[in-house]
Nucleic acid binder design. Structure first.
Length: 592
RNA sequence: GGAGCUGUGGUGUAGUGGCCUAACAUGCCUGCCUGUCACGCAGGAGAUCGCGAGUUCGACUCUCGUCAGCUCCGCCA
């Protein structure tokens, strides 16, 4: 049934056959996108990665060829030889880039027949994602998926070119490496030659790139596959690709400048979008105050407002008690939402509940005045001051959360995002970048009852904050920075500690003894005794960046073969059990 | 570890206790058709309603459990 390719060579991609080829003979290879059989004349849309072109089979071409065209079905793979011709008057298809021409077939070979696909190969089709993943090779035939992977290819090329042009060396680091404490759960690989011992797949090339700086490589970058055995999200896969970079003899601004230029070039060359540099910089503290999150989406307003001053003397116990305990009372003006129903308000209350808020207070502002179940706890003057502070006007809905600072911020921060969506305030075409800087060096882990590094233990503190190391560790700022795009963290990094005394202080503060540090990170500390350049770097999440560039909602749409939310590959059925012989070689026994 | 949403011919959906012998669209098969491009027309095949248990005279429909997918919380230095 299938015919040989022998003697045929593709002359053009289907999608590139244009008017300038009229009169020429072309040889095309591709998949049958659709067949339209008019009895006397048959049209076949032939598809390859560059697009569609219409093939015409006229009866005059001979019985054998015509019968072949009749037998063709969707997704058959064909080789077609034919002559490019202008379409007859009135049959031009403006929806097709190749719509002005068609190819009159003179020879066709059915290179491969195909079963009817489980879903139609088309951008419009909205198919269950598991079916898409099971038949990923069919899903990837859809033009939108092909565009995504082609964009990814181009982006990676532009990134490489940028780093090559700016004196960076591309260096590979090991995939089989040492499990280190702190951070995400490791994927472990058992060692056959060393019974009971394990490699870990890298969570990032962090320590290796610092060693490369000690080695004098000066500037390094790598497109590195990274692995973290944590639960998945729309923007998190257990294996993902980082653009990892590190530079020696630099300060924070050198890195930010180098990286934002790279991003600007990336967007210009891939999307023809101009990104204005330098990007705005926002301190962590200001981001949390104004937006409630450390990765604010600045495409719209609806900023958080602190109303502690206005409510501190009120009779509403919830607010008063929270303030007494050092918590925060903050609000957000849901502009024009005074008409929200009981159900709308319930939904929003449920939303803030996810982030730990115990309730959501509201003031409805109408022409007739202020309506609120808690209005009776405030004097008229207090109410007016709150409304003024919130810039409320008739038609608005004022929403308040009172809680400890972190809860109030998270609840209102996510409420803000929900309102931004509901009120249609987000311009989907916009690419809004910023740097968030001056992250705290440490945060207190309630479970472990100790201070932990917010970024990682090798992040340099801001020198002037060093005196707080013993007294107020939470106040120390780190020389760390994140790049944010449309409310998504696309990259983060820091200036590293390169002084042994500060590194020792850091370990001490984290409750890691020098012996422990030596055992876990000894190779790095040893290296640091042989002359370390001041250095720093950054890593970008390539999948997230591509997701945003392609305008998709999940990184799965820009990864060729992603995992499901339960970290399985439904196409290959991985993970799977292995032969007992394999386990034996690895000295591993399965319980049960 | 937890919460929510979803699961019905190949695909996407409708179906809120008997009207279901399960509907619609599309796809598929057969036939007709010489200018379509989501071609058209006529006919046909195709579903134990995710799985298991329960309630009921009767379950696609209600209850419980379970599995899978998605979204989120925790987690992700």
């Amino acid at each position: 049934m299938s015919e040989s390719l022998t003697g045929l060579k593709r002359s053009h991609y289907c999608g590139t056959v244009k008017k300038d080829l009229v009169g020429q003979e072309v040889t095309l290879m591709g998949w049958v996108h659709r067949r339209r059989d008019h009895g006397g004349v048959i049209f076949v849309d032939l598809r390859d990665r560059e697009g569609l072109v219409q093939i015409v089979f006229n009866p005059e071409i001979g019985e054998e060829l015509f019968q072949k065209a009749e037998a063709v079905r969707n997704e058959y793979v064909l080789a077609v030889v034919g002559t490019v011709g202008l379409r007859p008057e009135g049959t031009i298809n403006p929806n097709l880039t190749t719509g002005e021409i068609e190819v009159a077939a003179s020879e066709v070979r059915i290179l491969s027949i195909a079963k009817t696909p489980p879903f139609y190969i088309d951008d419009e089709v909205d198919v269950d994602e598991m079916i898409r993943l099971k038949y990923r090779y069919l899903d990837l035939r859809r033009p939108i998926m092909q565009k995504g992977l082609m964009l990814r290819h181009k982006a990676i090329k532009v990134i490489r070119d940028y780093f090559y042009d700016n004196g960076f060396l591309e260096i590979e680091t090991p995939m089989l490496t040492k499990s280190t404490p702190e951070g995400a759960r490791d994927y472990l690989v058992p060692s056959r030659l060393h019974e009971g011992e394990f490699f870990a797949l890298p969570q990032s090339p962090q320590l290796f790139k610092q060693l490369l700086m000690v080695a004098g490589m000066d500037k390094y970058f790598q497109l590195a596959r990274c692995f973290r055995d944590e639960d998945l999200r729309a923007d998190r896969q257990p294996e993902f690709t980082q653009l990892d970079a590190e530079m020696s003899f630099v300060e924070r601004e050198d890195i930010l400048t180098t990286m934002e230029k790279m991003i600007a070039q990336l967007f210009k060359k891939c999307l023809d979008v101009d990104i204005k540099t330098p990007l705005p910089r926002l301190s962590y503290q200001e981001a949390m105050e104004r937006f409630g999150v450390d990765k604010p989406d600045l495409r719209f307003g609806l900023e958080l407002v602190d109303v502690a001053e206005e409510v501190k003397d009120c009779q509403f116990k919830v607010f008063a008690q929270v303030l007494e305990k050092g918590g925060r009372v903050k609000g957000i003006n849901a502009t024009g939402c005074a008409h929200y129903s009981r159900k709308d308000l319930d939904d929003l209350t449920k939303l803030v509940g996810i982030y730990g808020a115990k309730g959501l207070a509201y003031f409805i502002l109408t022409e007739e005045g202020l309506k609120s179940p808690i209005a009776k706890f405030f004097t008229q003057e207090q109410l007016e001051r709150i409304v003024t502070r919130m810039e409320g006007k008739p038609g608005d809905l004022l929403l308040f959360v009172a809680d400890e600072a972190a809860v109030a911020a998270a609840a209102l921060g996510h409420l803000r995002l929900e309102l931004g969506k509901r009120l249609n305030l987000i311009n989907e075409e916009e690419f809004n970048f910023l740097w968030v800087v001056d992250f705290p060096l440490l945060e207190y882990d309630e479970e472990e009852k100790r201070w932990v590094a917010m970024h990682h233990p090798f992040t340099s503190p801001v020198e002037e904050d060093m005196p707080f190391m013993e007294t107020e560790p939470g106040r120390i700022r780190a020389k760390a920075y994140d790049m944010i795009l449309n409310g998504v963290e696309i990259g983060g990094g820091s200036i590293r500690i390169h002084r042994r005394d500060i590194q020792e202080l850091m370990f001490k503060r984290l409750g890691i003894s020098l012996e422990d540090a030596q055992e876990k990170f000894g190779f790095l500390l040893d290296a640091f005794e042989y002359g370390v350049p001041p250095h720093g770097g950054i890593a970008f999440g390539i999948d997230r960046l591509l997701m945003l560039m392609a305008g998709r909602n999940s990184i799965r749409d820009v990864i060729a073969f992603p995992k499901t939310q339960s970290a399985m590959d439904v196409l290959t059925q991985a993970p799977s059990s292995v032969a007992s012989r394999q386990l034996k070689e690895l000295h591993i026994k399965i319980k049960n």
